[in-house]
Computed example of a mutant assay.
Amino acid sequence: MAITFAATPRTRPDVAARPRGRLGRSARRNVTGWAFAGPATLIVVGLSLFPAVWAFFISRTKWNGIAPAVDVGWRNYQRIVQDPDAIAAARHTLVLTLLFVPASILLGMLIAVALNQRIRLIGFYRTCIFVPYVASAAATGILASFVFNPQFGAANEALRRLGLPAQQFLESPGQALLVVCVIALWGEVGFTAVVYLAALQDIPPDLVEAATVDGAGRWRVFRHIILPELRPVTVFVAIWQTITAMQLFDLIYTTTRGGPMNSTQTVVYYIYELAFQTQRLGYGAAVAYLLFAVTMLLTVGVIWYSRRRGSEVF
């Protein structure tokens, strides 16, 4: 009598252990990655979130940094709308933003189009445009103070050679804010130009060639092909430059210090005066939080509008 044994299926050890081994390797990679990035992440988050939360509690107090803080509730925020200095600083910031943001977008786009051409020494030209952006803003402000000096500045010397009257520039209440805007443009337009240049080089050449073959001129190609492709970049640049204009401090500190006659006192410089010159830390923190809220609302509004128009940026 023949005895037969049913063959039982055997599981290969390597197949059964493979998912667990992959999971273990993935966990080890995650632990290793967080071991390197974790301490730095904790430091960055701690230095960002803790001061922001602490500043909110300070904004609800009356405190000079030395004596015990006195809780005043929302009184500091209510005083902002009745403070003529805060209203004037907000008006100066609004004017600076309305001058700076469109000019930086337009100049950056035009410079990027020029730097996108195939000409000799194009790398040198691109470097020259970007150097003012990476230069220290404090050094830029100090240099601009000499250039626009009414007595011996290079700007007035150029006007005299052209037969034009000398100007007061940074010492004139009616001209100082405009001159600050020009200085800020000189330092920031390089960033805008580089961003637009990268976007221009990312446009598919087939679109431009097809439009050219169909008989479209340069202006029509730029208007109907290039501009729509640059729309997401324009939204990003508009948000970035708006935040830059609303938080402009270093140029004002090194050139006018809010003068003359507080004509260049922006919201950020007003916060600096409240907190570090008059020791009104609670009220200064309240103004800073209001500036943060306005900046956040503007950013969200621009992103929402761009998405309604079909420009996905963030």
Rank of each mutant, 00 (worst) to 15 (best):
A135G: 14
M1A: 14
D85I: 07
V267P: 10
Q168W: 13
V147K: 08
V233F: 04
P9W: 05
T242S: 12
N30H: 11
F148G: 02
I225G: 06
G123C: 07
N64V: 04
Q82C: 12
L115G: 01
F56N: 03
A16D: 04
G21K: 08
A137Q: 05
T61G: 00
R120D: 08
V235S: 01
T8K: 15
G258L: 09
F57A: 14
I183H: 12
G153V: 10
W186Q: 09
M246W: 07
I142P: 12
P260R: 03
P165I: 14
I80G: 11
V195E: 00
T11C: 05
A155W: 02
R160F: 12
W304H: 12
W240E: 06
R10D: 02
Q167I: 07
R161K: 13
N76M: 01
P165G: 11
L281C: 03
A198V: 14
A198K: 11
A67N: 13
A184W: 10
T140H: 03
D214A: 06
N149W: 09
V233Y: 05
G123E: 00
P150H: 04
G33N: 14
I87C: 00
G141K: 07
S26F: 10
F169T: 00
F276W: 04
Q277Y: 03
A67Q: 06
R28P: 01
V182C: 14
L110A: 09
A52C: 08
G46N: 01
Y77W: 02
L99H: 06
R79H: 12
F57I: 14
A137F: 12
S145K: 11
G284P: 08
T234F: 11
M296K: 15
T244G: 09
L110W: 07
L23S: 05
V208D: 04
T264P: 00
Q277L: 06
V182W: 14
I239Y: 05
I183L: 13
T61S: 09
I129F: 13
R28C: 07
E171I: 15
R126S: 06
M109N: 06
G108F: 12
G33P: 01
